[in-house]
Amino acid sequence: MGLLSTTPMLQKAKRDKHGIVAFNVHSFDSIFWVLEAAAELKSPVILQTTVGTVKSLGAENIVKVAKAASEHYQIPTGLHLDHCTDYEVIKTAIRAGYTSVMIDASMHAFDENVRQTKEVMDLADSLGVNVEAELGKVGGVEDDIVVAEEDAQKAVPKDCQRFVELTGVPTLAPSIGTAHGIYKGDPDIDFDRIEKIAQVVDVPLVLHGGSAVPDQDVRRCVAEGMAKVNVSTELKNAYSKAIREHFEQEPDSLDPRAYLQKAKDAAKEMAKSKIRMVGSEGKVVPVFSE
């Protein structure tokens, strides 16, 4: 099946009122267990990497492994570069075979955000590569991008409408009160804002900071128009916790096959719970070539 553009995947999810989870993967083995979890639930899925992971593993290597895994498991799979501020890294990812990229110019003024997004659209759109942009500022830490809680800003619906009209961007990540990482308190999600943005913006919306948001809140976000739901921290935590518990219980058991299998099993169950949460289980049907 190979890697697919996430544009038609997310457009269909939006029409059918379910979400697709975009899982941050940080190692080659995580690509396989994310896709294995999705395949067992017959769900489309998006693999996504941070700029740091691209620099660590190499864009071409990531694409090769992701292609091989997607062909093995035969499920609709997109490969997305998350939160990138560097045009050259975006070019590298697209040339390597990424099917979706995010240009994050949300820290700039509106006009500069538009300019940078249009620059990426000029490169990616003709190649069928999805482009995601952010409006407002999502708080928390994502790779090298740090937004303090007091600096987080929610997106304005009219600005979202104008931004999409000016850039033609096919997916938009508006800041609506979520944050990257694990929350210290309850997330302050502005559901009314999501509804208003979805009323004036025609493209699928993206929920950043999906880790540790209560399932019912994520489902409500999806119902309001959030077609892509990003999950990173909870997946890493499940994987790492299983390894830590292995050595706490069996300090002399040093066979990587033992502790990595436990880590994989824990992360897979977390991935499955997120897939069920967004309602994409059983949604694999042969329509993604449209």
Rank of each mutant, 00 (worst) to 15 (best):
G282C: 13
M270H: 07
P251K: 05
F191G: 08
Q74N: 15
I103F: 09
Q48V: 04
L35A: 14
M1P: 14
K67Y: 13
E134T: 04
E195N: 11
D215G: 13
G177T: 09
S43A: 15
T50C: 04
P76A: 07
V114K: 00
V65Y: 11
Q216P: 03
V45W: 02
H180S: 05
N24D: 15
V129K: 08
T50R: 11
L172E: 09
V169L: 00
D265I: 05
N61G: 13
A133P: 05
T178N: 01
H208Q: 08
A152C: 09
V45Q: 05
A68S: 12
K241H: 09
Y239N: 04
G225V: 02
V129P: 06
L135R: 03
T178V: 04
E195T: 11
P174S: 10
P8Q: 01
I275Y: 12
P174Q: 08
D192T: 05
L10S: 03
V63I: 05
S56F: 14
M121E: 00
A66I: 11
I145T: 12
T85G: 12
P174F: 09
I189Y: 02
E234D: 14
A242S: 09
D144Q: 12
L235T: 06
H72G: 13
A238V: 04
A38V: 10
F32Q: 08
A69C: 12
R244I: 06
K67N: 13
F28R: 01
R193D: 00
Q161K: 15
L254C: 06
I197V: 07
C160I: 03
D186P: 07
D82W: 00
R95Q: 15
I189F: 03
Q11E: 08
G140E: 01
P204E: 06
L79P: 08
V206S: 00
K42Y: 12
V21D: 07
S240W: 05
H80F: 08
D104H: 09
H246T: 02
M1V: 14
S211H: 02
Q261M: 11
A105F: 07
M1E: 15
E195G: 09
D202I: 05
R115P: 06
A212M: 12
E165G: 08
A59M: 12
A109C: 12
G185W: 04
L135D: 09
V131L: 03
V146T: 11
I20T: 10
G279T: 10
H72E: 15
N237E: 09
I197Y: 00
E224T: 14
L135F: 03
D111P: 13
V285R: 13
A105K: 00
L47H: 10
L205R: 02
P44Y: 10
V169N: 02
